[in-house]
Amino acid sequence: MKYTKEELINNIMTSIENKSFVKGTISQLLGDYSFDKIILKPVLIKENYLIQMEKFQNKKAFHENISMENISSILEEILDNFKQFLIITTTEELHIIKSKNSFNCKSKNLVKKEVTLTHNREKNYILNPQTPIPFLIELGVMTKEGHITKEKSNKFRQINRYLEFIEDTLKELQRKKLIKDHITVVDFGCGKSYLTFALYHYLKNIKNMKLNVIGLDLKKDVIDHCNAIAKKLNFENLEFLEGNIKDFNKLQNVDLIFSLHACNNATDYSILKGLEMNAKAILAVPCCQSEFNQKINKTSETGLKTYLSPLTKHGILQERFSSLATDALRSLSLELCGYKTQVMEFIDMEHTPKNILIKSIREDFKKEFYIERKNEYDRYINFLGIEPLLNSLIKTYYKI
Rank of each mutant, 00 (worst) to 15 (best):
I66L: 02
L211M: 13
V141F: 01
L311V: 15
V343L: 13
G24W: 04
L94V: 08
Q158I: 02
H63N: 14
E92T: 11
S107C: 06
G243Y: 09
L79W: 07
E236Q: 11
T25C: 11
G215L: 07
L272D: 01
N70K: 15
R379K: 13
K207I: 08
H225V: 00
S193H: 06
Y194F: 14
N297M: 11
H201T: 08
S270M: 09
N249A: 10
D378N: 14
S322P: 02
S333H: 03
D247A: 12
I71S: 05
K395T: 09
S20F: 03
K220N: 11
Y377H: 14
K231L: 12
L75S: 06
K171V: 07
I229D: 01
Q342I: 10
L241A: 08
C288E: 01
E64P: 09
H182F: 11
K273L: 09
D217F: 09
L304C: 07
S309H: 12
E151K: 14
S102C: 10
T326R: 06
T267Y: 08
A262F: 03
L218N: 08
L163H: 04
Y269S: 05
L29P: 04
N128W: 00
E172P: 02
L389N: 09
S20M: 05
G385N: 05
L317T: 08
L139V: 02
N293M: 01
T341Q: 05
T131P: 00
I96C: 05
L199W: 01
P129W: 02
L170W: 08
E92F: 11
A325F: 12
E92Q: 12
I257P: 06
G315V: 06
T184A: 10
L139R: 12
K59C: 08
E92V: 06
F21H: 02
K305Q: 05
I296G: 13
G191L: 00
K19A: 04
F240A: 01
S392M: 07
I96E: 05
K298S: 13
D268S: 14
T196I: 06
L390K: 06
F365K: 08
L251M: 12
L336W: 00
I45F: 03
D378I: 14
N293H: 11
L256Q: 01
K305P: 07
I257N: 03
N120V: 01
T91N: 12
A228R: 15
K273Y: 04
I166D: 09
N244K: 15
K177L: 09
I271M: 00
T149K: 10
Q57V: 12
L393Y: 09
Y397P: 02
L40I: 01
E239I: 09
S333F: 10
I257R: 04
L40N: 00
C105I: 15
F292H: 05
Q294H: 13
L390W: 07
L170N: 07
P129E: 00
E345R: 02
Q174R: 15
V43Y: 08
S102N: 12
L94I: 13
F197N: 02
K108D: 08
I12M: 08
F321K: 00
F321S: 00
I206M: 13
F21P: 00
D378C: 03
T396A: 08
H147W: 01
Q130G: 09
T184S: 13
K210D: 15
Q158M: 04
P286E: 00
C226T: 05
P310D: 14
L136A: 06
M68W: 04
I371A: 11
L275V: 10
K207M: 13
E301M: 13
K298A: 14
N18K: 12
H225Q: 11
R175K: 15
